[in-house]
């Protein structure tokens, strides 16, 4: 149950949790679910570290815990509070849950097929997880594409971020910490900036509906 199989199982958990984030009805629930999702991510990183014996990955998991499990959800919840009644955050997505799940399933499948074509010694053992991480990224994209509430689209970005984070860990476990720090800081800053933008949008434009943001066109 330890070693790579564990990593792969945790990978499967990643997919499920991320789907939950996509499907969450309210922003608040999504934030909590995202926190849970990030916890799974930390577990993935830690187990990977245990498997590969890479000390860097442990530090990564530590920073990931600090930023993703704690900081990001906190920021998002804070934003939600700040927005308050300025605008509706809980707009329903464009796609109903059934279709969203189907779409996610298709993405996961396609990613598995795509990854099976990749021939990398580093990734040989963790190929399922690699596919999961890629799929994770696309689930994030899907989240952005199908959500009407731009607040929930932030979660889309976060999921993409998590996906690429896992990929980074899988493909570049030996990369210098500074790289990881750079990526993580970028992510944090991105979330902060997105949150601020959402808040301003609510404040100055009184809407968080992506369908209202179609005034600039070709």
């Amino acid at each position: 149950m330890f070693g790579y199989p564990l990593v792969n199982v945790l990978g499967a958990c990643l997919i499920i949790t991320s789907m939950l984030v996509v499907l969450a009805r309210t922003g608040r629930a999504a934030a909590w679910l995202y926190s849970l999702q990030s916890l799974v991510l930390v577990a993935v990183l830690a187990s990977l570290g245990a498997v590969t014996g890479s000390t860097e990955l442990f530090t990564w998991s530590a920073t990931a815990f600090a930023t993703k499990v704690v900081l990001v959800p906190a920021i998002l919840l804070f934003t939600l509070k700040k927005i308050g009644d300025e605008a509706r955050t809980d707009l329903p997505p464009k796609l109903n849950p059934m279709k969203s799940v189907a779409l996610v399933a298709v993405e996961v499948f396609v990613c598995f097929v795509a990854v099976s074509g990749i021939d990398l010694p580093t990734a040989a053992e963790v190929r399922p997880t690699l596919a999961v991480s890629l799929a994770h990224f696309f689930i994030g994209l899907t989240c952005i594409v199908i959500q009407r509430s731009i607040f929930k689209q932030i979660f889309g970005y976060c999921l993409m971020e998590n996906g690429s984070h896992v990929t980074l860990a899988l493909l570049a476990p030996q990369a210098p910490e500074l790289v990881e720090i750079g990526v993580a800081t970028d992510a944090i800053f991105a979330v902060i900036i997105l949150a601020v933008l959402v808040w301003r949008m609510a404040r100055y434009a009184r809407t968080l509906d992506a369908d209202d943001l179609c005034e600039l066109k070709g």
Binding site: K94, L141, I144, V145, I146, A210, D211, L213, C214, E215, L216, K217, G218
Partner: peptide, 18 residues
């Protein structure tokens, strides 16, 4: 006609990238 591609909805823009 080209302009129609840029409908203003950024979610379709992401689909273009994909």
């Amino acid at each position: 006609w080209f302009s129609r591609m840029e409908s203003g909805d950024f979610r379709t823009y992401i689909v273009y990238i994909v």
